[in-house]
Write a protein that binds this DNA or RNA. Structure first.
Length: 566
RNA sequence: GCGCCCGUAGCUCAGCGGAUAGAGUGUUAGGUUGCGGACCUAAAGGUCGGUGGUUCGAGUCCACCCGGGCGUACCA
């Protein structure tokens, strides 16, 4: 008996045998049978599954698809999982699951518990999701929140799919921007002591730098001050970065994101570290060439548009150079089977050459996946606000979390496909305290919890419920929706499209509300979960329990809370 | 110039080559004396940016064009 996970395989097998039987009976010509012809109809009125096999076979078989469909359907044996299939033009075979099969899924969900819909596709594989990784030169802004929501949810989905997952933040604590940051900080610091210091031309004008300088003054007094006109001490910059990273970590924690590792760019340059090893390897391959005083990676020989500088003529590595070292560490040293880098779309020019470099150091072709998300356009008071850490006004992730809450912010970020530019209307998000889809989903969970609680007060529990009593359309509809979770997860980890998660969550919540309100719609109190009919009540409580498990699972994967009360 | 992403309902967005293109929100009309209405039911609302092509079948794939965004650094 198949469970929710391999029902497709089961159906394909069933269809395949029907076709063979039809061929053996001489009713179909012996032609190649295309696989994977099982799909889910958009309209559930057409069944739980549909096969387009007849449409795909029509050309080779030289018969009208409808006729093929009828033949195949006739040859499908009676089966405990599906009803007799029906045929629809232009050549679909529609398949409906039996009530018995659906009912048993309730037991399947309860038995699986919090691990319901776990997959095995990632078993024994190590995956890393690196996300946000914003320069620690300023607070996280709203756009970083999108990357955080996407990366964290993807990591959770991969974990559910069986991967051993690490979440990582790459701390750019070594580049030129770090130097500019240090200069700005020293200028602000000097200003606190009454000196007329200007922030550098390309510096960070934001108010937060003043606060950061203040913070440092409070802990170290004038300890970082140098005679006027001299540059600031080197350790002021690193102290500033440290504090900034701490702020970033707190912001992300408030957003519900926790990392397994904060990886220092600086550490790439440790003796015998990734940078040395990676460049040595490329040199060995003869892929590093010196030209115009700089060191270039000969990427054009590997299909790139041009070569790229790895080490500047002043001896400092470029971002590209350090990123090659970083990915050497990911693939070669740490041995990840799958690495997902979640980046803002403004980095897309970097994708191809990093993939090329990753392969050059030995990574599998498909091992690196760069997930780009388009930048967030902010709208406030009907006006578009550009996100820029260097420009004047930024809206921080902290402010967003403060105003709309982490759960709602995450849900909204996930709702859009990463590749689509999204507009975040702050005014709308703020006032969406009750008309917000996130609450719709969470409310469903709270009601499921309260039903169980209310029943328990009356001495009723799901224990011993007989699921074969679940025969109402709204009951079976809820089960059908619960069954989709594994499919959704599998799709998310295969396509890296996290937007499927919130859409599914809404569909599941809708199925629950339909079930929960059926008694009102039909004006029939006997459809309530808790009725005078104890056996039926217990059966429905089992369904409620299973639905709660399913909903909590999808909420958890999205990084949202599943409240029992609201 | 070249490259990548996007263009779907008033708005914000889903949509694995399949059946009558969906959801939320907004609008309109109903439902509530309750297992928490932060809910439910229904209606209206679309030349899927345009033109060709591939296919039994195209919002989906291909080509070109239009519009928006981003990239094309010894920045990250």
């Amino acid at each position: 008996m198949p469970d929710t996970r391999d029902i497709r395989l089961y159906l394909e097998d069933l269809l395949g045998r029907a076709v063979q039987s039809a061929i053996a009976a001489g009713e179909l010509p012996d032609v190649a049978v295309p696989g994977s012809a099982i799909e889910r109809p958009k309209d559930t009125a057409n069944g739980d599954f549909a096969s387009t096999l007849p449409l795909r076979m029509a050309r080779a078989a030289m018969k009208p698809p409808l006729e093929i469909a009828n033949v195949i359907a006739r040859h499908m044996a009676d089966d405990p999982v599906i009803e007799r299939p029906s045929v629809a033009p232009p050549g679909f075979i529609n398949i409906r699951l039996t009530s018995g099969f659906l009912q048993r899924q309730v037991e399947h969900v309860i038995a699986a518990g919090p691990g319901y819909a776990d997959l095995t596709v990632g078993a024994r594989k190590k995956a890393q999701v690196e996300f946000v990784s914003a320069n620690p030169t300023g607070p996280l802004h709203v756009g970083n929140g999108r990357g955080a929501a996407i990366g964290d949810a993807l990591a959770s989905a991969l974990a559910a799919a069986g991967y051993e997952v690490e979440r990582e933040y790459y701390v750019n604590d070594a580049g030129t921007q770090t130097d500019t940051f240090a200069e700005t900080l020293y200028a602000r610091y000097q200003q606190l002591f009454g000196r007329a210091a200007d922030i550098p031309r390309d510096g960070y004008p934001g108010e937060y730098m003043v606060e950061l300088a203040q913070e440092i003054k409070e802990e170290a007094g004038d300890g970082f001050l140098r005679p006027e006109g001299e540059p600031g001490p080197a350790d002021l910059g690193s102290r500033g970065i440290e504090l900034m990273v701490r702020h970033i970590r707190r912001s992300l924690e408030a957003f519900g994101v926790r990392y397994d590792r904060w990886y220092s760019e600086k550490s790439l340059y440790d003796p015998e570290g990734p940078y040395e090893k990676a460049t040595a390897l490329l040199r060995e391959h003869g892929q590093l060439v010196e030209r115009e005083g700089a060191l270039w990676f000969a990427s054009s020989e590997l299909g790139e548009d041009k070569d790229n500088v790895v080490v500047r003529s002043d001896g400092r590595p470029t971002y590209y150079g350090s990123d090659i070292a970083y990915h050497y560490d990911k693939f070669v040293t740490r041995g990840f089977d799958l690495v997902i880098d979640v980046w803002g779309a403004d980095h897309h020019g970097h994708v191809s050459r990093l993939k090329t470099a990753s392969r050059a150091i030995g990574a599998d072709r498909e091992a690196l996946h760069v997930l780009l998300y388009q930048l967030v356009t902010l709208k406030r008071g009907g006006e578009v606000v550009r996100l820029s850490k260097r420009g004047g006004e930024i809206i921080t992730l902290d402010e967003l979390v403060e105003e709309v809450g982490a759960d709602a912010a995450r849900f909204f970020f996930l709702l859009r496909s990463p590749g689509a530019q999204m507009e975040f209307d702050l005014d709308l998000a703020k006032k969406q305290s009750s008309e917000n889809p996130v609450f719709y989903v969470q409310y469903a969970h709270a009601r499921l919890a309260s039903i169980l609680e209310r029943a328990a007060e009356q001495g009723l529990t799901p224990d011993g419920g007989d699921v074969s009593l679940l025969t109402q359309p709204s009951e079976l509809g809820l089960i059908r929706e619960m069954m989709q979770l594994a499919d959704v997860l599998e799709s998310v980890v295969q396509t890296f499209e996290p937007q499927q998660l919130p859409h599914y969550a809404m569909a599941l919540a809708t199925a629950f509300h339909a079930f929960n309100d059926a008694f009102k719609q039909q004006n029939d109190p006997s459809l309530k979960v808790i009725t005078g009919d104890v056996a039926r009540s217990r059966a429905r409580l089992r369904l409620v329990l299973a639905a709660k498990i399913s909903l909590a699972r999808i909420l958890g994967i999205m990084g949202m809370t599943a409240p029992d009360r609201m």
